[in-house]
Structure formats: C-alpha cells, structure tokens
Amino acid sequence: MIAKLILKRLLVSVFILLAVSVVVFAATLLLPGDPARAILGQQATEERIAALQAELNLDRSPVERYFLWLGGLFVGNFGTSSATGGPVTDLLGERITASLVLMLCAALIAVPVGLAIGIFSALHRGKRADQAVTWGTLTLAALPEFVIGIALVTLFATSVFRILPAVTMSPPGQQVWEIPTQLILPTLTLALVVIPYIIRMMRATMAEVMDSGFVEMARLKGVPERRVILRHAVPHAIGPVAQVVAIQLAWLAGGVVVVEYLFRYPGIGQALIDAVTYRDVQVVQAISIIIAAVYVVVNLLADIVGILANPKLRSAS
C-alpha cells in the first residue's frame, strides 16, 4: 500500500520534471544569440558556423532539438558548453559535487539543530528562552543571505577575528573539501538562512501537539515526560515540519548561487552566474534542470516522510 502511494508520487515527480524541462528549454530558446557563433567568436566563417550548427543540431526544428536534448539528459549528456567548447558534464561535474557537499553540510547542521531548538522552544512556551528564540529567528528570517554572509565574514574572517578564510581557494587538482576550514563560513551562512523557518515551524506544530488530548492522556497514564515528548508528541510534529524542511532544503539548491558568489565557492551557483554572463545556454539549461530535480526529489522525500509519520495516510490508500 505504501509502495503504491510512493510509486504514485514518483510518477507525478517524473511528470513535473518533464514539464520543467519543457519550460526551461522554451525559455532558453527565447534568449538571443546563436551558440555556434558564440563558441566560434566574431571572426568565424559562415561555413564553419554552419558546420558547427549541424554538429550541435541547431539546424533542426525546436521540437526535434528538445527531444534530442531530453534524450541526452537521460544518458548524462547535457550538451556542449559554448564558453569552453567542451561537454557541459566536464564543466559541471566537479562543481556539482562541490555544491552538494556544501548543501549537505548545511542541511546536516540546520535540520537537527532547527528541530531541537524548535522542540525546546515549544516546551518552554512563553518563558524567556522561548521569547529569545522567537526574536532570534525573526531577526534571522528578516536578513537576506548575503547580509548574513557578509556579517559572518566581518566577524570571523576580516575585522574582528581572523580565524577563518573569507574566500575559497581552489587550486587546480585539489577538491574544496580538502581544506575544511574554508567550508565553515559558507555552510554556516546557508544553515543560518534556513534554520529560522525550521525552528518556527517545529515550534508551532510541537506546541499544538503538546496541547492535544493524547499528550495529556499520555501524561495522565503516568508516561515519563521524556517518553511523552519523544514517543507521543514528536512523531506528530514531524509530518508537517518535513514539508517545511523540504522547501528549505530545496531553497538551498537555489540559495547556493548567492552564497557561492559571495565566498567565491566553485559550485554550480558560480557556474550559473558565469554561464548567464557568457550566454552559455546549454549550461544554464543543465543547471536549471539540476536545481529543479533537487526541488522535486526533496519534496518527494518530504511526502514519503509525511506518509510514514501518519498511519491514517498510510492505510488510506
């Protein structure tokens, strides 16, 4: 039954990704400029351009090109970068890994810490600690990510303390995570951006659950408070919170653009900005699809968590 429900969501996800691919492709078609001309530069002869257009399938109809492109996606062929002239995969391979490392670190910090603070805040509702958390989260939520990033840089890298690197070094042949200290500030920035929403949502759902009849009943059964919270209350809060966590994690995929730019972090965000600057259509398409895929996958995971956390949904199908 659960498998069937998950399969259904999976099919919907695939459909959404296909729809996104159409939109992305159509949008990039509207961009001015000819990739072949962009690759070969100003001095290219007409014959060479025609030859490259044929090679890149640019002489075919847009529908044909869409399906060729789509078919390429399935075998990992994202096309040719007009900036480097090489395959997009070569350009993005390392950057995707670097971005994923950054996002994963941020998620691994933000989710557990956010949930824990949210629960703590809900259990101390109305007390000073809770009010402090509320003010803190509101302030953080009001700050754009680059402000948080700049503040952190000022605090830890330039003006106050000089203990952490302000920008990322990526000498050729060396992976970014081989110098762990340079991951700290970007990770912290991303975590601080998503954490207030997770805290607030967890606090709200948890507070509601703690007021419910079954939590009171559990206490009146003599269940120890720790067990009341972990066994009776938290499972009910997880479902709704998973959705918010998913949206936040998905946001990370887009949020890395600004943060990577700020810290000169060699991830897909950087690549996207470069690609837009150089009109590198194929790279823009590829990154858009990747970010969309992250959104879809993360939301799918949240749906699955929601289904698993709610027996009613589980047996309803």
Partner: peptide, 15 residues
C-alpha cells in the same frame, strides 16, 4: 486512572 471525554482525541493516532 483517567478515562477522557473524547476517545478520538485522546488515543494517540500514530500508535
């Protein structure tokens, strides 16, 4: 022991 008013609300739906 306590028997509550609304069993639908006082039984934990996830256990």
């Amino acid at each position: 022991a306590y028997i509550p008013q609304d069993p639908a609300l006082s039984l934990n739906p996830a256990i």
